[in-house]
Design a protein around this nucleic acid. Sequence first.
DNA 1: ACCTGAACACCGTTCAAGT
DNA 2: ACCTGAACACCGTTCAAGT
Lengths: 231, 231
Amino acid sequence: MVERADGARRNPLSRDRILRTAIALANQSGIDSVSMRNLAQELGVVPMALYKHVANKDELLDGMIDVVVSAIDPPGEGLDWSTAVRRRILSARQALLGHPWASRVIESRTTPTPAVLAYMDSMIGMLLSGGLSVDLTHHVMHALGSRLLGFSQELFAPPAAVDPDASAATARALAGTYPHLAKVAARADHDEQSAVGSRCDDQFEFEFTLDLLLDGIEALRLQQWSSRPAR
Amino acid sequence: MVERADGARRNPLSRDRILRTAIALANQSGIDSVSMRNLAQELGVVPMALYKHVANKDELLDGMIDVVVSAIDPPGEGLDWSTAVRRRILSARQALLGHPWASRVIESRTTPTPAVLAYMDSMIGMLLSGGLSVDLTHHVMHALGSRLLGFSQELFAPPAAVDPDASAATARALAGTYPHLAKVAARADHDEQSAVGSRCDDQFEFEFTLDLLLDGIEALRLQQWSSRPAR
DNA sequence: ACCTGAACACCGTTCAAGT
DNA sequence: ACCTGAACACCGTTCAAGT
């Protein structure tokens, strides 16, 4: 048989190539299309070939997460704690924005991956060196929660692009059943002169909430707040 | 054939019975065990029998959510907005606490269910009648996000009960790689005199964050904050 | 020793055959 | 008209057979 330039030969399978292909596949076709079988086909190999580089699907998902999380900027230098944390969280948000599957996958893990642990450790370091007590830092980590990684924690995924006519009709119908909701949605729509798609400025909402939390935390730090009575 | 007391006869299949069984199954064995086939077996019917009462699995999940969300207390009367919202969110948290699968399922839906929409509408009503502007209310709904339904938005599920010896060993190992994390975790552990299981008081953390947000929002209301310049 | 096809135990859902 | 067994197109993973 002639030594033809088959993909496997020119581009041997590796954990790195598997992860990069899996991420590209998830970005393009959604996380549900990342099955071992489908991914193998994408790579031009038999499904079982993947199992030499990843133990199982969970390890594949962990690896995908670590690639994404590792792309978050390192802490900035010479900033007050609040600005430094703010910038880093916004960087995390940017890192995750191109990988809409990532937040769901991260949340589904029962055990944090190394890159996530390293990120959390670094974040805690920023808080401590910013003058927050160990006690306050602990509660702040809980309060920021998944927002640390840039999750918006909104309740619903942005509704896919909708037919304007249909959405106008349903909007009218909804206004009858959910008058308060319609009132707020109408206001938001009006301001952005969109039809009824209820397009919110996600970046604004994210920063609004983040600042609400950071400002509250800074106030607690200034008053030397503690979750336990001083002795 | 004798008229025997078979389950199907005494207890005919209905949408309600399907939903209640599905919820019980999810509570007991986890949401992954709620498959159409498994659920059917639990009910003593053939899988296809379910499809007469629910269109498909998505509709089943929507139904399960609505049952849980409908159990949240209605708004209290005669309270200031902040207290009323606080109580209701804590009630939502209680309602969801017995259904650990619910938050993940709610987040996985692309379209909100009727009960969730009704809850959100009611919450918006509470904010508006509490004196928040439509503009502020809009941003507050984003800021509270899934917390409105009692989600803690923590990053990782509580680690399942761990072997103390093993966890002590890994804790020492982790302390080397993640020193800041270990410092905060050790402090939290010490205070609760637990071993190294890192048992946090989830209720305290939830209320801490909720109050951080509500206090910040009340301050914005008092200063008549607006996301746009007054004209 | 390495690789992989077939198999196992699942899934949600369709569809045609049976009553 | 109603019900349901078999089938379809998947899944992650095991395992034994082939090289």
